Amino acid sequence: MRISIGHVSRYTYSEPTKYSILALRLTPRSFQGQRIVEWRISAPGIDSTRPFCDGFGNTVHLVSCIDRHAESLIIAKGVVETEDRAGVVQGLHDSAPLSIYRRQTGKTAANDDIRALAQIAAGRRVRDMHALMHAVRDAIDYRVGTTGSSTTAADALAQGSGVCQDHAHVFIAAARSLGMPARYVSGYLFDGEDRPAEANHAWAEVWLEDLGWVGFDPANRICPTDHYVRLASGLDSSFAAPIRGIRHGVANEELDVVVEVQQQSVQQQQ
């Protein structure tokens, strides 16, 4: 499948700010089942910077704006060719040792409730991970607006509602409580609709001895298919966020995000 993506993020400030710096993890990588046909990013200062690879294998552009500005506009767009590999991720270089992905973070710390949930996957096999995926979704109803970027896995499970970020955090926390390497993935999902979305998608990957990294999307109860485009990964959502930044000044900030994910028609591909 060929998927076209447009990701627009607009930061507006209540008064002009003097300095801002942004780390952009907005460049997907090619691997088995995913090939980048074309991709470009427009952002303040991006023409004067060189991308680098972070410790998790993500491509990062570090951009800055030193002139007074009342907004920052970041646009990422391109075309990605995908193939259904049943969630198995191969051919994607990551220099981080597996032990790193067993490390708990503030957002993925396991409490007694998460450890109890994890027992359904104690066998650590593929079918156990599928069972855990469904258990997480059963425990957390998909509901927008009930959690935020700082919500922890324990909080989301206790609340019983959240979004894909929360499902991924709980799945990761449960897997790590069993001693299994697990990581958070940000990306895009073609859901068959042409409507714009307010955010990108998120899921989890866990290391299985016989298969390597395998993706699980508890929010949709499925392993990633050719409808998914993998963007970045890390220990939790903070490490894989498409955009993170700091700025100088006390102005209030508003963020408006629009994401469009569409399947390319045969005529568009020619």
Rank of each mutant, 00 (worst) to 15 (best):
L117M: 10
E254H: 12
D113L: 12
R247Q: 11
H167I: 11
S177G: 12
T59R: 13
S48Q: 14
N111C: 08
I243D: 01
D210T: 15
G91H: 06
R137V: 06
G78K: 00
Q32S: 15
S161P: 09
D112N: 13
A121C: 08
W207Q: 03
Q262F: 14
A156W: 09
H93F: 14
Y188M: 03
A199I: 03
A122E: 15
S150V: 12
C223E: 12
S48W: 07
A204T: 08
A241W: 02
A199R: 07
S233Y: 05
M129Y: 08
E209P: 13
P97I: 00
S30E: 07
A121Y: 07
V170N: 06
H134I: 10
R103Y: 02
A175M: 07
V206R: 01
S265W: 04
N58W: 06
L73W: 10
Y101C: 00
H61D: 04
I21R: 15
Q159I: 01
E254I: 04
L98I: 03
E38C: 09
A43N: 07
G91W: 00
L178A: 08
T146H: 09
L24Q: 04
I75H: 11
L73T: 10
A154I: 01
I5A: 02
N220R: 06
V79W: 00
D217E: 04
G91T: 10
I5R: 05
Q270W: 13
G179M: 03
L255E: 01
D67F: 11
C164R: 03
V60Q: 02
R103K: 11
W207A: 11
R85E: 12
H130V: 11
V206I: 13
V163Y: 09
A156D: 11
A204Y: 04
L157R: 01
A153R: 02
I36D: 02
A110R: 07
E260R: 15
G57L: 06
V88D: 05
D113N: 15
R50K: 14
I140K: 11
A96T: 09
G6N: 08
I114R: 06
R35G: 04
V261P: 01
F171E: 07
R115L: 11
D217M: 02
Q165K: 10
H169K: 06
F239L: 00
T59A: 11
E209T: 15
V79C: 11
T146N: 05
S95H: 13
V258T: 15
W39T: 05
P97F: 00
H130N: 11
G245T: 01
Q165Y: 03
E15F: 04
G162P: 07
L208S: 08
V261H: 05
V214W: 01
E15I: 00
V257Y: 03
A240G: 08
I66C: 09
I36A: 02
T49I: 10
P218W: 10
P224M: 09
P28F: 00
W39A: 02
A241L: 04
L73E: 06
L235E: 02
G33N: 08
I3R: 05
G57N: 10
I100V: 14
S99T: 12
G187C: 06
N220Q: 04
I100T: 14
V144L: 12
G123S: 13
E83W: 00
V126P: 02
